[in-house]
Structures are given as C-alpha cells and as structure tokens.
Nucleic acid binder design. Structure first.
Lengths: 344, 344
DNA sequence: GTGAAAGCGCTAACAG
DNA sequence: CTGTTAGCGCTTTCAC
C-alpha cells in the first residue's frame, strides 16, 4: 500500500507538495501538479484517512445516533444523512442507541475519539444526558428530530405542536368528537408537544381539552395493535384514532380491520411521518408528513457552518409540516358505537 | 482533550503501560493498573481511535456497502451489521452505492483508507468490478446477499434456488398452473438463481419449465404495481404471482386490490424476504424468509476469523430458507380468468 | 511555490 | 512486568 512518501519520491517532490496537490490547499505549479498526479495514478495511491484525520482533527466522518434503527423513520434519517454526508466528502457512522442511554454515551465517546466532523443526534429520551459530553469539546453537533423545549444546542426539529394541531383539526372538521390519541413515550418531548397541539385544536373547537383522551405507547407497530384492544374496551364510542407515528397507526389499522371494523367508515385513523409504507397499505394512511430529507439536509449543513458547537450556539430550526389526506379518514358514523367485533 | 501522555504523566508510568492497561494486551501489575485507571477517570481520558487505528492498522471499523439503502431488506442488513459490529467493538460505516458502480468503488476506497477491520459487500450487480480492488490488500471482506455463482471471495448468501423452488412448489401444490414471476434485475445473479429454482419446480411437476413466465423488475415497490398492469394485459389467465422480493409483492398486491381483484381468492401472491411489513398488510404476505440477522452474524464473524481475505479464501456459506405461509396464497379459482377489473 | 521538520495519538518491537 | 524508541501517514508550521 503506497503512502504519500512513495508518491513524493516518484514525483521527485516533497510529501508536503503531494499533500498540497491532493487537498488543493495552496496553489501548486501546473507542472509539479501533473507530475504528482501521474505518480498518484501510477502507484494507485489512496490517501489514508486516519493519518490525515489524526493530524488535521477532521476525520471526514459524520456520526448519527438514532434510538431505534429498526424504525423506518430513523432508517430514513440514516438514508438521507448518508446522502448529505457524502456531499461533504464524509462517511457516515451510524449508531443504534437502542433506547439505552449508556449505549448512547459510549457511541458518542467513540465518535469523539474518531475526530468526527460532526454529530447528528436523536436522543433516546429527555432523560438522556449524553449531550453534556459535547458541551466542551469543539465537535459540532446538531440535535435532530428529538429536540427539547429549551435545547442547549443547535437543533433541527419538526413543528410538533402544529403536527398535533393539523391531525386533530382534520378530524374535528370531519365531525369527529370522540378522538383518541396513541402517543409515543411521554418522556420524549415531541410526544408531549404533539399532544399539546391536539389539545389546542380541541380548545379551538370549544371542546374540553383536558379530557383529551390518550394512550401512552412506544412508537412500535405492536403497540398500535395493543392500543386498539384498550380503546375498544374503555372507549367504544371512539370514532377516530390519531397515532403519533405511522408505525403505530398501521398497527391500529390492522387491529381494527382484523375485528371487522372498517376504516374509515367506522373509525378514522391518522398517523405522523409519512413513511413510504403509509401509501402501501389499504386504505392509504392519512398522515402528517415529516420532511426527513429536508431535515437531514439542514442538519448536515449546520454541522459544516462551523458554529454548531457547544451549548452557546442554540440555533433552532423548526420545520413546518403538512397534512397528507389519503383514505383512512372520513366523516364519523352518524349513529352510535363501533359495531361489535366481527371475527375475520 | 487529554491524551495518553497526560494519563501516563499523572499515573507516573510510561505511555506504553497506559496502552497495555487499556488494551489488556499483556498483564500489568495490579497496583500500576489501578493507578492508571484512576488517572484515566480523573482526566476523563478518551482513547483516540485514529491514533491507534493508524498504528495498529485496525480502525475498529466495519464497512457495509449496500446497493439501495432505502430498500427495507438492506435496512435490515444495516441494522444487524451494526449490532454485530458493536459486539466486536467496531463502529459501522454504511455506504449507499445507489446502484452506481462508481460510487461503489469510491466507497471501498474510502473504507480502505480508514484501515477498516472488514468490509461487508452487497454488489450493485454482477458487472460490479469493485471486488477486484480487494484482492491484494489484506483487508478481510465478505460478500453478503448478492453473491455470484463462482465467487472469488468469501460469501454469505441465502439459498436462492431453494427459495425459488419453495415459492413455486407451494403455488403448484395449491393447484396453480399459471404462475408469473416478477424478478429483480436479471444482471443480479440471485435473481437468475431464484428463477432457476422456479423452473426446477415446474419441471418436477412435469410442466414446461421453458415457458416459465416472468417480468424483469427492479426490486422496487413501484415496479410491483407496474407489473400487474403488464400481467393483466398479457396473461389474464394468471392465477398466481411470485415476486422476488416483498416490496414488489406488496406493490403487486396493491395494484391487484385496487382493481378489485381479490387476494388470494382470485390471485395468489408470494414474496421473498419477510420484511416486517409483510405481516402489516392485509392479507398478510406468504413469503420465503431471508435470515437477515443470521446472515449478518455469520458474515461479521467470518470477517474476524482472519482468513476472509483476498481471492484465495472462498468459503461460501449458503443459508437455507423457509417458506412462511400466511394469507396471500390459496387454491386457484376453478373457473376461468381474473374477473374484469372493477373500479375500487 | 516548495521543502524540512515536527508532531497529531497511539502501538509494536525491543531491551531490560 | 515496564520503559524506551521508532514510526504508522498525514498536515502544518516555518523557512527559503
């Protein structure tokens, strides 16, 4: 494996010059440059990124920490972060923190030990303390998706209140009054924010916001199914269910349909995210769209703007969301309750 | 940011000893060890992985190249590779080669420049030449999922012939005779292998294998939808469709259902992969299961066995597959053709 | 515009 | 069991 030294020798220049040619850091005379370039191709030279990263403190690496890589939403974050990292000539390291704060800490430690150019961070929950580690070190980092109310860092989040408001207003305007919300973990701020948006919409319709009915979930498909059981037992008058992500919404839909309950005729369902799968089910899911790609684009950009470092810089980008109306919502039944479960 | 030198000074030992304590490479006297450990915690020392990677030529890094990160199957590979990389104290770098051989080459170049401990590689297509780059360098690599017939490298693949055979035999045993296969790109070997498995099954049933009817696709959801159009036009007598991955199978199902064609009453559908979504749709998809996690486990293990390097080592692990029968398959209609498309 | 030299942080080889 | 020394491959001063 040839090193810069070999290239330098073959080209008859110093290693410093080779470095300059490669990085275009200062102008190099045309002639020397071509000599170097020839040597590079002749030898099949490949720069060692550890050497340069060690010296320059720029590992050409972006780290992305996600709480659940199996969740399609986070798969989207992985996908788009990779895309934009590449544009900045960086590779992407992904870490699945698996809802485990200790894993989160370890992962960030490793990233820092690799002189990463930046970190995108979606916290496990509000209790996560991992960001503290980043306060002092100069590594840029941006909180993505799972921000907090008073974030002590740069962040790119969607407008979660609006999201809840959009979902609720849509259902209310269709005439629903018995709405149940299936939330994510309530120790994740955005879940509370989305719920607050729902409450605001209820108030606007002069309904009692305090009685906003919800079931606390975990963002997983299986919980959507479970939630239905609970709702059917405790709130049979429900005409609409809003799940705080698509995965649970799909679980809700399947559990309902398995009982012979029709969507949207008997019960309307709304989600959040607009993962690709939302259009692959029947009926297609009405949902509030999370602009994954846009969020990743902005977050990566902030990393490279150079001031997304430490607790001082708190630029917060809140991305607006929009409702995508598909087939899973309609007017409520005019009469009475959900028909008794029908065996499939 | 403290370095080993700082730790050594505080503990009153040499840097070499600090290194030994951290890596447990040779025994260190109890007393010195605790002194070093105390110094480490006192300073909040964090090893720099570039320094060690540069020197030891082990970057503590695994690279994974996938042709389409948006595909849930590959998202699974990412997920499980991350899991097993972590067990080997490695981080995972993912590269989406986006069906682009040039991107594939670049990515591998970068991985090599990072002294990765190993590379898991799922090629864009049979035409991909990227593996050649790995012949000489000593970096372990394993081809995963997308292997070739006569692979000049270690590989972990599923039994694709069996897969095709299982899918076809299932349909045949149900009584289907008019089966259409929606393939992936035929310049990807496993697609041809799966097709060969189908043919073998047809022959066993004394049907004309040469007339095995197929449409060449691209593994994407949208193509499943398109394929239905084609099939309905050109082969209205079709009673069963086997798509070579679940994503296309789901596309097929939706396009059929949109036309009022019932599954499985009018047409049976089978997939391959058993992605999580396969159970989230209705009817649930009958499919041949790809053992993602097992494949990743073995592949990562092979990386660390230490002989998965260069073209000499060609250990090939072929993982058996199994059919998961769910709701999308049944006996064919006894009479005639698919009912004319019914507006939804 | 170019070269020499130092050093990023670590491990490996050797000596004791 | 421990220290010394060298050097992984690169970038960054600082000269010239």
């Amino acid at each position: 494996m040839p090193s810069m030294k070999d290239v330098a020798r073959l080209a008859g220049v110093s290693v410093a010059t080779v470095s300059r040619v490669i990085n275009k850091t200062v102008p190099v005379e045309e002639q020397t440059r071509t000599r170097v370039e020839e040597a590079i191709t002749r030898l099949g030279y490949r720069p060692n990124l550890l050497g340069s990263g060690l010296r320059s403190r720029r590992g050409r690496l972006i780290g992305l920490a996600v709480p659940d890589i199996a969740n399609p939403s986070f798969a989207n974050f992985v996908r788009y972060t990779e895309e934009f990292a590449r544009r900045h000539k960086c590779n992407l390291i992904v870490g699945n923190t698996a809802d485990d704060p200790a894993a989160e800490r370890r992962f960030i430690d490793q990233l820092l030990g690799r002189n990463v150019d930046g970190i995108l961070f979606s916290r496990v929950s509000d209790e996560s303390e991992s960001l503290r580690m980043l306060d002092d070190v100069g590594t840029p980092f941006v909180v993505i998706d799972r921000g907090m109310q008073d974030e002590r860092a740069a962040s790119v989040v969607m407008d979660n209140e609006r999201t809840g408001h959009l979902a609720a207003r849509h259902l209310l305007s269709l005439g629903h009054r018995e709405i149940v919300c299936v939330t994510g973990p309530l120790n994740v701020a955005l879940c509370r924010q989305r719920l607050a948006g729902l409450r605001a919409a209820l108030r606007e319709s002069e309904l009692d916001a305090s009685e906003a009915c919800f079931v606390e979930g975990n963002f997983k498909y299986g919980f959507g199914e479970e939630a239905v059981e609970h709702i059917l037992t405790h709130r049979p008058e429900t005409t609409a269910i809003w799940a705080q992500n698509d995965l649970m919404a799909i679980g809700v839909m399947n559990a309902l349909q398995r009982r012979g309950i029709r969507i949207p005729e008997d019960v309307s369902v709304v989600g959040v995210d607009d993962i690709e799968f939302a259009t692959m089910i029947r009926p297609q899911l009405t949902t509030v769209q999370q602009p994954f790609r846009e969020m990743c684009r902005i977050a990566v950009e902030m990393l490279f703007e150079g001031n997304a470092t430490g607790a001082d810089f708190r630029r917060r980008v809140v991305i607006s969301t929009q409702l995508v109306i598909r087939e899973s919502t309609s007017h409520p039944r005019v009469d009475g309750e959900i028909p008794h479960s029908v065996a499939r």
